[in-house]
Amino acid sequence: MSSVDTSNYQQLIKQGLWSENPGMVKLLGLCPLLAVSNTLINGISLGLATLLTLVVSNTIVSCAQGMLPQAVRIPMYVLIIATTVTVIELVTQAWLPDLYISLGIFLPLIVTNCLILGRAEAFAARNPVRHAAIDGVAMGLGFLLVLVALGGAREIIGQGSLLTDSAHLFGSMANDWHLRFFSEQHGMLLALLPPGAFIGLGLIVALKNKIDTMLVTTNESS
């Protein structure tokens, strides 16, 4: 998995955003990815929270490498991740209450996102701190990207709008950001329901694979 030259930051970013993208390639953390991507703002919010958790947990795990006994490392990762998430949850509840209401039960669910545990085990535990942090940013951004694409698509198709409830994330200055393309009644409800999430993600993965194939063929023919 980490057979790549880890000293190369560009490589790390490319991996996170594209070639090993957690949402499109590794298919990690599908539960929150599918459950919370019903609107663009929900997607962005969960993506940011996951990104933050991933960077913090990767950094801590990387700092602690060598100190954690091999046999009990997984419970320790879980402890570290759970602590990080709890702190983020409390801070959100205290100072971003609107966001807390809309993310609700999904914030604690970040604990169970195997993407975070996966990166701790596969990357952070055996790489220098700086690389682990960059990997956290890259993987987190990759996850955020898929959430944004899926959330945006589902919101447009399902309810004909974009950026509803942006005030939950950006405060009252975002009250007017709401865009409406067509009346909500004409939305395709399927997109908002769980099957729509699976279909949407499937289409995104297919599109990614298509682009990869095209890139390969252009490279070969040139």
């Binding site: 954690l68 759970a82 709890t86």
Partner: peptide, 18 residues
């Protein structure tokens, strides 16, 4: 025993932070 102690202290630190 050592592993248990380390696990225990990490848990204690986590609880303290929370």
């Amino acid at each position: 025993l050592k592993q248990g102690l380390i696990l225990g202290s990490v848990a204690t630190i986590s609880i303290a932070i929370i």
